[in-house]
């Protein structure tokens, strides 16, 4: 029973841990740079979901003040993580754009996106 209670109160965190592990595997285990970028995006998304999950309150409404609900803090979910993640998503988009630009340049230069081939090529041209 204790384990079931723990699972019911923490299951969102477990899902987030699964997403984080998938993202980390994409960044570490894959050799294609594009797949590394996708893994990084999954990792970022897991962190966004973690923040949004922390904002939830039982019985809380969306953080837009409504005359029916009044002004008490218990009536609304925590608005602060929403703000932080709103800015975080935009930064993630611009990060993805710059990373894609770098990938294009790398592909045009080396004709491949495999990191082992790129490292071998760099070592060869350094000698």
């Amino acid at each position: 029973m204790v384990i079931i209670d723990l699972f019911l109160s923490r299951y969102v965190y477990f899902m987030i841990v699964v997403l984080l592990a998938i993202g980390l595997y994409g960044m570490l285990g894959k050799h294609n740079l594009m797949k590394k970028l996708i893994g990084m995006n999954i990792f970022q998304t897991a962190i966004f979901i973690f923040f949004i999950e922390g904002a939830a309150k039982r019985g809380g409404s969306v953080p837009v003040i409504d005359e029916i609900l009044g002004m008490e803090a218990a009536q609304y979910v925590n608005p602060l993580p929403h703000v932080l993640i709103l800015t975080g998503i935009v930064v993630a988009i611009s990060l993805t754009g710059v990373a894609l630009a770098f990938l294009l340049v790398i592909y045009r230069t080396y004709k491949t996106l495999d990191d082992r081939a790129i490292m071998a090529n760099m070592k060869e041209s350094a000698e």
Partner: peptide, 13 residues
């Protein structure tokens, strides 16, 4: 700013 930047990223990509 967001509008201009996203169109710019798309065009350059």
């Amino acid at each position: 700013a967001v509008f201009g930047t996203l169109v710019l990223i798309f065009d350059s990509l």
